[in-house]
Amino acid sequence: MIQKENIESKSNSVPLEDLGVLSISIQHAMHTSEGKKMLEVSTQIMPHELLCLFGHSGAGKTTILRILAGLTKPDKGRIVFGNTVWFDSEKKINLPPQQRNVGFMFQDYALFPNMSIEKNIRFAQKEKDEAEVEKLLNLFDLAELRHRKSGQLSGGQKQRVALARALAAKPSVLMLDEPLSALDCEMRAALQHEIRKAHQLLKTITLMVSHDKHEIIKLSTSVMVLRNGTVEKCGKAEEIFGKSSNHNGEHKTACMNLCVH
């Protein structure tokens, strides 16, 4: 979105499509607790971008992720990733989630309760690769917990397993739906680091829903602010609420400070 020109100039002979640009232009009627709302989003997300979706509940953040993952079918529009059309309402194209190669981290983590941590990660792999499983277990500090099931894990541990599992599938786009919302401050700060690590490891687009401005400033390369289903603002985090969040007298808690530092 923001770095489009830079990337184009850097990659001279490589067309943008091959780098995996995500082009979105969708319309979808959402049924929220406040009634029916139209979700209208039209944007381009550049490769290597970590885009945070910000806005009130019911603004359409999760719905956008679900639409991109193929879990919700939009009413109208077109979604293209690289050279692949994921969705086109006019041509009646709608690739199922299985064919979009996205990594989706759910708000409730959605770990498979019947499988151990190790098996959750192995299940995600498209081709068996034990070395990769070991690498992910070590990277997310899960090696000692490998035989435990999800019911025996804390919130932070579940979050790390969910991230490791999403990465094991080697997704083209990583989507995180409020990944840190259920965690305490200390854990939150530590896991923001894990998310950054995951994004760098994948070298692709990461989309993350977050309510925490400080977290967004810390992690994102760009932010999309949504209000009632439409994009209100788009840009770098500091430009959008960098100054205002520091100077408008907003209540800063000890937690926020911990998360920022």
């Binding site: 993952a69 193929g70 879990l71 199922p96 989630p97 299985q98 064919q99 979009r100 190669n101 996205v102 990594g103 989706f104 759910f106 708000q107 409730d108 959605a110 498979f112 019947n114 299940f123 995600a124 498209k126 599992r165 599938a169």
Partner: peptide, 23 residues
């Protein structure tokens, strides 16, 4: 069974049948 378990399996590339049997 939470819907997210099925959806997680689908986003991991697993078919409906594999999801049924394994998840």
């Amino acid at each position: 069974i939470p819907k997210s378990l099925r959806e997680a399996s689908y986003t991991l590339g697993k078919s409906e049948f594999t999801t049924f049997v394994r998840v």
